[in-house]
C-alpha cells in the first residue's frame, strides 16, 4: 500500500500500541475516505497531510478527526470534486430524516464481530 500515515509528529493519527484508534464510527469512515481517495489518485496524500499538520498546528485543542474531516472537505472542494457548502446542505438534509433513520452506516468492525 502506498499510503502510509505518520506514526509520530503532529500529523499522526491517534494510536494505542500501533493500532489506530477511532473514538466513533464516523472517524473511521472519514479516515477510510481519505485513504481511498488518495489510493485512487483523486487527492494527493502529501498535500492532504501537509494541510492536516497545518490545521492541527493552528488549533491544537480541536479533536484530531474533526481536523481531518475539515481538511478532507477543503481538499475536495479545492479540487472541484464537491461544491462549497454542499456537504453542509446534505448533512442538514440527513439530519431531517425521520426518526430511526438517523444513524450512520454500520461500522465494518461491528459487522465482522457479529
Amino acid at each position: 500500500m502506498s499510503i502510509t500515515t505518520d506514526t509520530t509528529g503532529p500529523g499522526a493519527p491517534p494510536r494505542a500500541n500501533g493500532e489506530l484508534v477511532f473514538a466513533a464510527p464516523w472517524e473511521g469512515r472519514a479516515f477510510g475516505m481519505a485513504v481511498a481517495l488518495a489510493e485512487s489518485g483523486r487527492i494527493t496524500w502529501d498535500e492532504f497531510r501537509e494541510r492536516l499538520i497545518a490545521r492541527i498546528s493552528v488549533d491544537p485543542a480541536r479533536a484530531y478527526y474533526a481536523c481531518w474531516l475539515a481538511v478532507l472537505e477543503e481538499v475536495l472542494v479545492g479540487a472541484g470534486r464537491i461544491g462549497d457548502g454542499e456537504v453542509g446542505t446534505r448533512a442538514t438534509r440527513l439530519a431531517g430524516r425521520a426518526a430511526g433513520h438517523d444513524h450512520a452506516p454500520p461500522h465494518p468492525s461491528a459487522e465482522r464481530a457479529g
Partner: peptide
Amino acid sequence: PGPSLRTEAL
C-alpha cells in the same frame, strides 16, 4: 450538523 452527519453526507 455535527461531524458524524457531515461525514455521512460527504
